[in-house]
Design a protein around this nucleic acid. Structure first.
Lengths: 113, 113
DNA sequence: AAGCAATATTCCTTGACGGGAATATTCCTG
DNA sequence: CAGGAATATTCCCGTCAAGGAATATTGCTT
């Protein structure tokens, strides 16, 4: 029992932890954009932009709609919902309730028969 | 002006996107633990455990308190609070509303098959 | 049909990262 | 004080991911 990660897809975090991809996501919050527009606004080259979009797409963070010559990318809600419910499960941590170090120290001492 | 990421420390996501470190975080939710205990419960070797803890510590995800021979690690609330408020700012994305009627209609047609 | 525009893909190189093994450091105990 | 426990650090190596450059692919326009 050592390997199970409950809430989040680790790959979602991985995908978002790349600065350019995070920038793409932040940009797409405002609405769908074509590859060219994304590359333009972020100062990226077209091939790298496509590559990053592929990673985001493979992870379900983004979806694509072909429109003639261009591909329009936009955010998908699911990964963010998942991320949200995962972080929500950290309420107790965020409220700093259980930083009961003293209790733990006592427990440690007990074990040290 | 191409590099600023508003809410999250990208390094927080990066740190959490490594499976073993995510496991450590999940484990520490329940309360503080020593290096040995962490290594034990996750089936990791001590040196790797220390290294991962260093990364988590450098990113402020975890803090350490020396207690004689041992080091007790526990979660810090700040990164999770930050992550939370960042994800909260995606409310509009997370509530999936169909601002794209065409896609919706197309999907309808597929189901009629 | 030809050429151009928009995007995707491939190949190559380089740097970062994680694991293994060994060693260093600090503290505790007899 | 010696030895052992708990943890940190260093070195080496293999893998992987990201950027650059070139090329392929598909659609549009005239």
């Amino acid at each position: 029992m050592s390997g199970k990660i409950p809430g989040v897809n680790i790959t979602t975090l991985s995908a978002l932890s790349e600065p350019n991809r995070m920038n793409i996501v932040e940009l797409l919050r405002q609405g769908p954009l074509t590859v060219g527009e994304i590359a333009d606004q972020l100062g990226l080259r077209q091939p790298q932009t496509s590559k990053h979009l592929k990673v985001l797409s493979d992870n379900g963070i983004v979806e694509m709609q072909a429109e003639g010559n261009r591909r329009i990318y936009k955010l998908r809600p699911e990964p963010f919902q998942a991320l949200n419910s995962w972080i929500q499960s950290f309420q107790s941590v965020m409220q700093e309730r259980f930083d009961n170090l003293d209790a733990y120290l006592k427990e440690l001492q007990n074990k040290e028969k």
